[in-house]
Design a protein around this nucleic acid. Structure first.
Lengths: 220, 220, 220, 220
DNA sequence: AATGAATGAGGGTTCATTCAT
DNA sequence: AATGAATGAACCCTCATTCAT
């Protein structure tokens, strides 16, 4: 019986009320904006105000500040992963060359403010948290797939790995500290473009160190 | 007579005591390390402890946090400018090609933690402060000189300006937030190398936006 | 309907919670006592403890120390103004002579610790703050009215103005610094009485300077 | 033998060096000025700077802040006592009436900033300290003598005592808090004059409480 | 004797988090 | 479920006092 099933379900994970869900979304959205605009250490009360809820409501949805940050990271991770998968599709369908797809992805990720989230890895943030696991793996897998295709097409130098791209991409698109991240874009896309040029074959120099793999990101 | 002159001079601005000077150095050093490791908003008390002095001693030497940050910035600026000028000398003497000198400079600047200074452009920091004026101008002039030589040698693409290099260099060598910045170097030099490859002639792509000049750095 | 209107009004500026109101009162009360006893620069933490609240609660109600001081000033101002208006009523109704009403007011103001407010004119305090405007005007108007009546009755010498009375009253009833202000009252009322005797007609001496008007109080 | 005697004397209380004496004077003077101008809680370092000596020199002369305050109080006490004794002499010589001498003394004491010293009785100050004993007794004795003469001349009401005058005089001539004590004088002399009028015979009212004697000043 | 430097305790204020409505 | 209020710990900075030159 439907009702019974529903009841049973609710008992385990009671379905959130519609307004609660809406609040949750608004909080994550407000946090993302404020992190980008004012850095990751904005007071939670400010986020609550921007979201139009009381401060305690934030705690009803997120156990503590760290969890809120994590959820914001996760949201952005998902959106960036979407872009990477779209890039793969474009490459596979022949809509664009693999390297062009990679280029497009890199610029799209910057526009999604992937770099703005970097500060959230700030002191006390645990990048190995289970909540982030799935999202990260999907993102990394997609980026790896994109790079594989570009490498297979002979366009991407072979001495770099997915970690190299992710770190450099994040760093180059991080907002300059103390800025509202507004006109930084003027530069960011230039620098990403230059970096991408450096990724092309033939390699123009020998790289020091070893390719940064997924595992390396884990071990800092 | 030199001694007499020196004595007279000292009388007006009495030479700081040896222990005070030593403390000042230790504070700047501790601050530099902690800024690199934990960001520029570490508690001053921690810096004091790391420097092995009482908290108030920090305030005796630096009127407030802003001034301490400024002095750390200045110290690093000076060291990086030294490297740039050495690069110019090497290029002019024919000891190395201009682009190789540029490469060496970029890596040296990263080793001096130029990226650690980026957080010091944080909110509330005044990059136009008189204390920094001279140092910045020397640094910018030296980097411009180095790039001019590489461009004159036909090795450096012509669609970039000194601001592009300084920003990208800073960003790529910034410590990952929350990291002890220890093994980040493994990656940093790889990414700089890749970026430098992208700077070489012939240009492999068209850059969006306009070259970031010194003035652009002023106007973020 | 009244209730409806009230409800609507409350909706815009929601009625403060009962406990918050009680806390606010307790803080103002505690501050008043401690200002009187220990001067207006007592640690806010002490006030919080005396009021039985956490220190941060003080800041929730009053943005900073200045605002707390202002509210204490305002509270006492209001109570003293009440006394002055009662004096006017007594004089007008013939219940007592105008000068007797003035006498009664002066002693009542001292009992309300008007002198304790004097330290609140301390450095950094803005006596022109909008919050205080209305209260001050009411107080000054009432005192002036009282003096006018006594002067009209030929009992009050004509070479003094409202500022003279307010300043002298405040000074004479100020707590001796460092005293618990407990038995000071024994003296205060004597001295006020002596001063009042000096205010009576006929004048026994010529006064130096000019009558202190309301404006003079503004311009110290 | 002179030298021997001198030596013996020095051994007990070594004669202070001339420059040390001068420093001591300068510190007391600077402290008096700054107390008057900025209140009794000015930083000791400021006083040292105003006196043109190092901060530690203050501690060589005065064990702690309290002692410095005490010495400033003592210095003013002495000067005010001088005025009182001059008043007695004037009264005894018939140069002026006893009450006129009292009036002159009161105004002179105000000009010596006797009221400015009142804040030095601030929390933590011990008015019973031996250092102050002699000075206070001389001052009180002189004021009492002056009042006795005015009372004997039938000009001063009999229901007041020396404590009444000292307290009221101090209070009325205290600087308004937060002011540089500059134009307060305009009012002070008016209010003192009014108060003095109230002290004259015949008494115009009955005083509450009991006359404040010297002992009462001790027992707050 | 005199000084500049160093110190630690304390005050004001903010903020993440918990409590009571 | 949602909220406003309350809390205490932490940080920045000041200052009386002590130390080393």
């Amino acid at each position: 019986m439907d009702t019974a099933t529903a009841t049973a379900t609710q008992r385990r994970v009671p379905r959130p009320r519609a307004d609660a869900l809406r609040n949750r979304e608004r909080i994550v959205g407000a946090a993302r904006e404020m992190f980008v605009e004012h850095g990751s250490d904005v007071p939670l009360d400010e986020i609550a105000r921007r979201a139009g809820v009381g401060n305690a409501t934030v705690y009803r949805h997120f156990a503590d500040r760290a969890e809120l940050v994590r959820q914001v990271v996760l949201a952005v991770t998902d959106r960036v992963a979407d872009h990477a998968e779209e890039g793969i599709a474009a490459a596979d369908s022949g809509e664009s060359t693999a390297f062009d797809a990679l280029r497009a992805f890199v610029h799209a990720a910057a526009d999604e403010r992937i770099g703005a989230l970097c500060p959230m890895l700030s002191a006390g943030f645990d990048p190995y948290h289970p909540d982030l696991l799935e999202g990260r793996e999907r993102l990394e897998g997609a980026i790896a797939g994109l790079m594989d295709r570009a490498r297979a097409a002979g366009q991407l130098r072979t001495d770099i790995a997915v970690g190299d791209l992710m770190i450099a991409l994040s760093q180059l698109s991080r907002p300059l500290p103390g800025t509202a991240c507004v006109n930084v874009d003027r530069f960011v896309h230039r620098h990403l473009q230059l970096f991408l040029d450096g990724l092309m074959t033939p390699a123009r120099s020998e790289l020091p160190g070893e390719a940064a793999t997924l595992e390396d990101l884990r071990r800092h």
